[in-house]
Design a binder for these strands. Structure first.
Lengths: 251, 251
DNA sequence: GCAAAAGTGTTAACTTTACACCCATGT
DNA sequence: ACATGGGTGTAAAGTTAACACTTTTGC
């Protein structure tokens, strides 16, 4: 997060199809908008969302989803990746633009719309991926049981949850919430939590294996106090070939 | 489209999580962003998109999708509805936010992101719905064969097309492009064009009727030079009950 | 040996696909 | 009477859903 010096900018709030301005000197336009990021993780059988506690006004000491004003020369996607990276140290994370939120009164300092993203981050084998920077201020919270939140952030998370439920039916994104190597039961739990329903174990395995994008590893779980499960990896290449034909998975 | 007077606004370009500003007087933030709208119609067996010819800089006399800077106190959805209404006179049209586009250099006057929407408008029985205001500047263009366009508008339309292909599989939106009363063959053509494939007539009818959200009318087509087709209406209430259980239609 | 989760197959119900001819209407 | 699109049923193939017991491992 780069500090920005305080500066003044002059500008006209002109709709650009008004024809009353001098021909050659188009007015300068400028936007203050933020990029916010709903970060999901999966731990202890629960879907979690990463919240920060704000340490500035407005909404000082409220919980919020991480976000920031976008920098001047920055793509939206890059801004979202930066916010995620600053907070977690992670890169190459599954991320998708969610929605632009722009109620005129959503921000007390003026008209600030926000472009919301959501990200799915892989847990380590011991649990959710730890937060590196800002750790004292960031906390994982159960996604289906949210506290009061700053701005319209509750609305944003709720839309992200709906999007996730929707997406998992036609993109295999369950893997994004698991470690590289995972068992079929772990994967099934992701589907059960996100789709909010129980799934038959035998049918789930048959169907998910039938797509062929899971590579069976010659490895098993370690240190569990019951029969160790075989581990699998997601084979992105095979999926890429599959997805043009359409993919719909409602177990 | 309301004219806006020319004014100057002073503001600070502060990230709001910097802690160097005076406690009680938060800086005023302000955004210039536009709302653009991809308007789809269906006519002569083709999917069309409504383009305008710009009459101001930048991109004067280029073709573009209709759009405008958002007004200060306006919701994003309302701004999109206003743009559509100003151009077509229509209200209560199917409309959905598509995506926020924000490459830093997408607008020559500065950082102007745009929130893109897409809308589906019903054709009249004689063809596509006529454009009322701005008619001289607006034209229906084949959606799969676009001209050069201003800004990043081609990219926007292409994403809208992908979204439409996707949406039609799990929301029954084919109706939104047809008159209130339509024949099953008309509806099938919508699916064939948007999904870009031929569909078996008998199977299509069986499947779409099996959902129960089409009400059979005691009316037939008029003035066709062949056996007149029975007309149907979309019953929104029945669909609303259905959609919680999920809906996937890939004919 | 028991608790805990892994792993495995079959059948019936349902859904999808493929396919061809007669019907109604206007010219 | 012919051209145009409207309207209809069936059987085979494929998919989904329901269901219960044995295996492995750690304690």
């Amino acid at each position: 997060m780069q500090a920005q010096t305080c500066n003044y900018v002059f500008f006209f709030s002109y709709p650009f199809n008004q024809n009353i301005m001098p021909k050659k000197t188009l007015p300068k336009l400028h936007s203050d908008f933020s990029v916010d990021c709903v970060i999901f993780g999966f731990d202890e059988g629960e879907l979690k969302v990463l919240l920060i506690e704000r340490n500035e006004e407005p909404y000082k000491s409220w919980k919020a989803i991480p976000g920031n004003l976008a920098q001047d020369k920055e793509n939206l996607d890059d801004a979202a990746a930066r916010i995620l990276h600053d907070l977690t140290g992670l890169e190459n994370v599954f991320m998708e633009q969610l929605h632009a939120f722009g109620k005129p009164d959503r921000h007390p300092q003026g008209r600030v719309i926000t472009i919301a993203y959501y990200a799915l981050i892989k847990s380590t084998t011991n649990g959710i991926h730890p937060v590196t920077t800002f750790a004292s201020k960031a906390l994982w919270w159960p996604a289906y049981d949210l506290p009061e939140l700053a701005f319209d952030h509750k609305e944003i998370i709720e839309m992200a949850l709906r999007r996730l439920t929707n997406r998992i039916r036609y993109i295999p994104i369950g893997f994004e919430l698991l470690p590289e190597k995972f068992s079929l039961t772990q994967l099934q739990h992701i589907y059960e939590v996100i789709l909010r329903k129980d799934i038959d174990k035998r049918n789930f395995r048959k169907k998910i294996l039938s797509y062929g994008f899971l590579t069976e590893l010659n490895q098993k779980q370690q240190g569990v106090s019951h029969r160790a499960a075989r581990l699998y990896k997601f084979n992105k290449k095979i999926y890429e070939g599959l997805k043009d034909k359409g993919f719909y998975f409602e177990p």
